[in-house]
Computed example of a mutant assay.
Amino acid sequence: MTADLGRAPNLTKHDARQRLEHERNCRLAQLRAIEESAPHADKDLQEAQTAAIERVLKEIDAARERLADGPYGTCKSCRSFIPVERLEILPYVRFCVGCQQRVS
């Protein structure tokens, strides 16, 4: 049985790993679609989309490291637990909602 993350008994490490892998695969598919549309796409838009997706991929990789090291699911700023509902939607998120609003 996999351990629960923090106070989020409904999200196990296995669940988090699966969600992160799904997010990663979706972003890689988006990059492939952008590359395939290259001859017909607006170059500035394509570059902006690619940069945004690459940023998310870095966040996903960082979340995978946090999952392996243990601080996954804890806000990087206030150190409180990130609600499981937030992690289910954005499994790579680093901040709770309050801290995210302050850093944005």
Rank of each mutant, 00 (worst) to 15 (best):
L5Y: 02
N10Q: 10
K13C: 11
K13I: 00
K13A: 12
D15H: 10
D15K: 06
A16H: 02
A16Y: 07
R17N: 07
Q18W: 09
Q18H: 04
E21C: 08
E21L: 14
H22W: 11
E23I: 10
E23G: 02
R24M: 02
N25E: 05
C26L: 11
C26W: 13
Q30A: 05
Q30F: 06
A33P: 01
A33H: 02
I34S: 02
E36S: 08
E36L: 07
A41Q: 07
K43Y: 03
L45M: 12
Q46G: 05
Q46D: 07
Q46M: 15
Q46R: 15
E47L: 14
E47W: 00
T50H: 14
A51M: 15
E54Q: 14
R55Y: 11
L57S: 02
I60M: 03
D61Q: 12
A62I: 00
A62K: 07
E65T: 08
R66L: 11
R66E: 07
A68K: 13
D69R: 12
T74P: 04
K76H: 13
C78K: 08
S80L: 12
S80Q: 15
F81R: 01
F81I: 13
F81W: 13
I82T: 02
P83G: 01
E88P: 09
E88S: 14
L90K: 14
V93F: 04
R94A: 14
R94V: 03
F95Q: 06
Q100L: 10
Q100A: 11
Q101T: 07
Q101H: 15
S104E: 11
